[in-house]
Design a protein around this nucleic acid. Structure first.
Lengths: 339, 339
DNA sequence: CTGTTAGCGCGTTCAG
DNA sequence: CTGAACGCGCTAACAG
């Protein structure tokens, strides 16, 4: 029974039954809380099982159950900051029950994705969650996959698939509405890479909120990259072009940090002179910013939980399709608060 | 064969055999590349398998193989930045073969850990990697776990277990040696929470390097918290106490960012006046810092790969115990470069 | 209440 | 080269 070297084979139900002096069927029923077992017998079996550290073999159980109680989580953004909270939400939703999660990282590679897909199907997962790295639609795995699939973050390009995505338009809108509520009227928007749907969607939301208030963005949407450096450069350009700006919607928390730094370098006071709001509510960026950054939380964990819940329902048989969006929320902090 | 709603049961080997007009045994041999099968027969079987999208059932295979080809990854730091690269390294090492990874997040909770442990053992994983959230030793799962276990990041408190940990003493040493090489002599150390072994180990390494050069730290090790705010405050205190400082070893990249910000606020030029080095080489922190931050990379991915490799060897039967440290490396950037 | 029998999907003997 | 029989660990259906 040493740790290093030879391992002992796990205890089987048969052994438990033998030690308890009953048949395997009785032992099975006793341990699974089924009726028609004498209380004394049940207690005896349970005691033996406990003593032998019996752990039922889920694989064997899966054979008859027709379900393995496992799901695959196929991500393309393991190192990124989006799939992690999604993963946690899903793990949370599954972990409460008796479902285990296979994690696979395909790293944006279609071949690796195919490889992992085969492996997961070979392990007879009951379902799949596919997590993309961008909010742009991604190719569907197709209707021929033998198990239910839910797409998270990146929706499937097939509307008949089930997808759960962040609502970036609303995010842009509520960020802007928050600024409008504070009385800001001359609002600029420094965003990330324009090839990302997330950037364009947020910009659209910003535009909607302004239009509803009879206002316009000060200057064009300044697309760039998702970096602090761009935040610094972008806000500089915006201020130079239009000095009277009283608020900036930054395309992400990283951009927002850059914006805050550049404003401080210029001697502009936040939030008194200019209010700043970011997106993602990403703790590491938020924690260090001066002042603390108001940010729109996309509720990724909720997204993961919803994906898991929908997958569960699909596995249980309920039909379900279409894209579901997760509502974001504004988390107010010092970069807009005292304005 | 619709996606939503009823799913078709996966194709079995039996069906393939029937469609190909052969026995299951023949079909099995044909698909597994075994000898004693007529080439024509083999091709026919392969063709049918392909047409029916046959995916061999890994669970059934596991029955005879005695191994499931799965491992459990039990982490306590899923949202943290340490377990992720470890996870990626492990996933990388396993993914190349035919091993799948069950991911469980126990969140520092012993009960949840026990729950997940039972679930994983029930699924008959071939082995386990346990990832801690701190480098302080953690309780061993004990010698009674039926499968090999490798501890990563946090070592087991039982020296007979196999552990893979970062080498924080060396990290502190090489960070300081790098500064000494640049001619810096008056070095301060602003670190994180002193209750973390990581903080104390790095400080020890810093001290070793200085002692070897016949020098001493300027001021005490300034322990605080792992935050930018503390980096700003800590370096301020250090400068006020001893104005002649020409380099700062920061306890983490986040602390280093705070240090950089405070120095810039004070009009101190980096790296000309003061050089700064951080730890972890954490991309999000590195990316935005001004100037780019020199940092000690703890090589977490290597750690994950080593953990996976050692686990593999243990599963294959080789005895293996003891703590293995992963060598860190200095990544030089602007915060020390032109000094 | 308890024991017996069958069978889940596959690989692996062993006879043919 | 092929086919039938066995076993893995467990549960469901039925018999006692």
């Amino acid at each position: 029974m040493t740790t290093t070297g030879g391992r002992s084979r796990p205890v089987t139900l048969r052994e438990v039954a033998q030690h308890a002096g009953v048949s395997v069927a009785t032992a099975s029923k006793a341990l699974n809380g089924k009726a028609d077992v004498h209380p004394d017998t049940r207690r005896r079996v349970e005691e033996v099982a406990d003593r032998l550290a019996f752990t039922p073999n889920s694989l064997a159980r899966a054979i008859t159950a027709g379900q393995t109680g496992t799901v695959g989580l196929l991500t393309h953004d393991l190192e990124g900051r989006f799939s992690l909270p999604i993963l946690m939400g899903a793990e949370d939703a599954f972990g409460a029950g008796r479902t285990s999660v296979f994690l696979c990282d395909a790293r944006e590679d279609a071949i690796r994705e195919q490889h992992h897909l085969r492996a997961l199907l070979g392990r007879r997962v009951d379902g799949l969650i596919v997590v993309g790295s961008k909010t742009d639609p991604r190719p569907s795995l197709g209707p021929d996959v033998a198990v239910p699939v839910v797409y998270a973050y990146a929706p499937s390009d097939d509307p008949r698939d089930a997808s759960v995505v962040p609502d970036n338009v609303t995010a842009g809108r509520i960020a802007t509405e928050h600024l409008l509520t504070l009385g800001r009227r001359r609002i600029a928007h420094v965003s990330g890479d324009a090839t990302y749907a997330a950037a364009r969607d947020r910009a659209e939301g910003v535009g909607q909120a302004l239009a509803a208030a009879g206002l316009e963005l000060v200057g064009p949407v300044r697309y760039g990259s998702w970096s602090e450096a761009w935040g610094r450069a972008g806000v500089g350009a915006a201020l130079d072009a239009a000095p009277g700006i009283d608020a900036v919607v930054a395309g992400s928390d990283q951009i927002a940090r850059g914006v805050l730094d550049a404003l401080r370098d210029r001697g502009v006071t936040v939030p008194d002179d200019v209010a700043v709001v970011g997106f993602d509510n990403w703790e590491p960026m938020i924690a260090g910013s001066r002042p603390a950054l108001t940010s729109v939380d996309m509720n990724f964990e909720t997204m993961g939980r919803r994906a898991a819940t929908r997958l569960f329902a699909r596995i249980a048989g309920s039909p379900d399709e279409g894209v579901e969006t997760i509502a974001p929320r504004v988390v107010v902090r010092g970069s807009t608060a005292s304005g």
